[in-house]
Design a protein around this nucleic acid. Structure first.
Lengths: 113, 113
DNA sequence: CTAAGACTTGAACAATTGTTGAAGTCAAGC
DNA sequence: GCTTGACTTCAACAATTGTTCAAGTCTTAG
C-alpha cells in the first residue's frame, strides 16, 4: 500500500494533485486508522495515464470516464481501447489546430483589412 | 461608436465575454454619460483575433501582450508579426501533441505492464 | 514508551474564463 | 416629456485545476 507521497513520486505529480485526483475519482484509496490514504499498486500508472490525457487536452471529468473502463489489472484490450481513444482525441485536437491555422492565414476575412 | 452588443454580434462572442476582454485590456472603450461602453471600429477585429488565438491555446494574458503590439489601424507588418507569432505557437502546440502521442504509443514504459 | 522529524489531511485560497441577474440606461414612438 | 422594450452595468457566482498551511499522523531512534 502506497502513501500519497509515494504515488506522487512514482507518477511525477504533486501530492496535492494526487489528492485532487482521488477526490475526482481517477484513483481510489483505502484509509488507515488515522485517516491517511493508502493506494494500490495501480495508482501511479493511472495517474501517468491521466497526465498524458491532460496533455492531449482532456478534462479531469473526461479522464475519469476513460479510467472508469480501466480495471485495476488491465488486459491488452483495455490498453488498446484507452490507446485508441487518446489517439483519436489527439488527432481531433491536431486537426482543430490546423483549422485555426487556416483561419489565421485567411486573416483578411477575419477583419476585412 | 459601437455598443457591447454590436461588437459581440460582429465578433461572434457573448456580451459578457466582450466586457471581460475589456477588463483584461484586449480592447479599450470610452464611456457614455450614463457609463455605458462605446468601442471603436477595430474592437470586433481584435476580438476575432483573440478568439483564434484562444483556439491556438494562448491565455488571455498572452493575447493581451500580443494585441498590445497591434495599433488601432495595423499596417501590413503588424499583421505579419501577429500572424508569425500565432503560427509559431500553433506549431509548438502541434509538436507537443505529437510528443504526447509518442508517449502514449510507448505506453509500456508509462506503466511497466 | 516517547520524542522528533517527515509526511498527510482538509479547508481555504488562487488563477482563469467567463455567466447570471437585479438595477440602471438608451432610443423610439406617442 | 414620458413610456416602453431592448440593451448595459457590475457584483456575485460558477467550473476547473490545483496550491498552501495549520493541525494531525506515522515511523524510527533512543
Amino acid at each position: 500500500m502506497l502513501t500519497v507521497g509515494e504515488v506522487a513520486r512514482e507518477a511525477g505529480a504533486s501530492g496535492s494533485a494526487i489528492r485532487f485526483y482521488e477526490r475526482q475519482g481517477l484513483i481510489t484509496a483505502s484509509r488507515t486508522s488515522g485517516n491517511q490514504r493508502r493506494f494500490g499498486p495501480d495508482a501511479a500508472c493511472r495517474v501517468r495515464v491521466a497526465r498524458v490525457a491532460q496533455r492531449i487536452g482532456l478534462s479531469v471529468g473526461e479522464i475519469r470516464d476513460l479510467l472508469a473502463d480501466l480495471p485495476p489489472e488491465p488486459a491488452l484490450t483495455d490498453w488498446q481501447r484507452l490507446h485508441d481513444r487518446l489517439t483519436a482525441e489527439a488527432d481531433r485536437r491536431i486537426a482543430e489546430l490546423h483549422a485555426a491555422l487556416g483561419d489565421i492565414r485567411s486573416g483578411r476575412r477575419l477583419c476585412d483589412l
